[in-house]
Amino acid sequence: MIHVEDLTKYYGDFCAVNQINFDIEKGEILGLLGPNGAGKTTTLRMLTGFIQPTSGTIRVKDLNIYRDTFEIKKILGYLPESAPLYHDMLVYDYLIFVSGIRGIEKEKRPSHIHHLADLCGINEIMHKPIGELSKGYRQRVGLAHAMMGDPEILILDEPTSGLDPNQIVEIREIIRQIGREKTVVLSTHILSEAEATCNRIIIVNHGKIVADGSTDTLKQSASGGHLEISLQNADLKSVREKLMPIDGVEGITQLDGEGYLHLRINCKSPPDIRADIYREIKKTDWVLLEFHHETKTLENIFRELTKEI
């Protein structure tokens, strides 16, 4: 659907985006994750054709961003950060204006607008000036704006920034709903959000991609991780003797636990050593009470990948 190759953007001497490559498939919800100033917004703006890349190519379907900017704009809906809309206009007038520019036939406009209003929950504020709306409602109007004319691709820049928790949940639900039929690219610096809404995540830092994959693969591929087991009828010394020789085990430490042994096994992953450990335990007369694989949270991965060196 979208193909990005060696995309680079310089602002004067400052390199905001540095040779990034990725492909987005149809029907994906892609989260662009990164700390402030990592180049998320710049990347999205280049995808929409609002700013020109310094070098590199973007292809949307078979269209080239330099040559077919106009055609790309037609199949793309965009919500900029903090939804900068015309403050003096009424919500309904604004949506009518957008539907006109989007080339929706006159007879279909009211029904299409009502459909979007239902989806985004803005029915009761249609008659208000945009400038008087709360941030959450403005964001919803922006979302309705982006979805006008059913574009195939939606690009949302920090769609939930500045919203209260209830609104965040609602907006996420809307995005998930849209994501069933459309390709969505959204940027955020909130990890739980990316985890909750996206099926694929790209982490950027200093204009470079540092990780790319689904939430599960990202968690698995991150170095480290540990197992927690609880054993009855065993002592720490013999456990160490039996389990340390297994390839991949880096250390065993005792955690709390009364009447049984609660251990943490630090291991390299991959390879997955759970089977080896189980087999080793089966040979003894220990009683296995608990066996738990603790993966790294996305938060740890994110911090690891984007921390300043």
Binding site: F70, K73, K74, Y78, P80, P84, R102
Partner: peptide, 14 residues
Amino acid sequence: NVGSYEILLTMPVT
């Protein structure tokens, strides 16, 4: 100033 130019220009207009 408001930033609405970004919204305007990312719609299908030149």
